[in-house]
Amino acid sequence: MKETRLGEFEEVILLLVGILGDEAYAFKLSEEFESQTKRSVSIGAVHSTLNRLSEKGFLTSEMGGASPERGGRRKRIYKITALGERILSEARDFRVSLWSQYPGFAGG
C-alpha cells in the first residue's frame, strides 16, 4: 500500500497543479510556489514531489509542447487525477471540521 496522506508541501503542490492547469510543469510550479508563498524552492525539489505524487496516483502526466526558451525541448504537464481531487477535498473537509470546532473562530 502506498502512503495516501498528504504533507503540507505536497498539498500545496497538488493545489498549484490544479490552479495552473495546462501550464502545470515543474519550472512553472516552482515559480508559482515562490510567488504565492514567498518561499524559495528548487525545481528539483518540486520535481521530486511531483514524482512522488504521481507514484501515489494523485497525478498523471504527459509530455506537452516545446517552446524556444526551453531550447526546443518538451515539458511534462501534470494533471490531477480523480483520486487526487478526492484526497484534496478530504484534506479540506478535515481542516474545515477542525476549524468549526475551534470556539474562538466559530463565528468567523
Binding site: Y25, A26, F27, I43, H47, M63, G71, R73, R74, K75
Partner: peptide
C-alpha cells in the same frame, strides 16, 4: 529532456 528544458 524535461529537466534540461525546465532548467533552461
Amino acid at each position: 529532456e524535461e529537466v534540461l528544458g525546465d532548467l533552461e
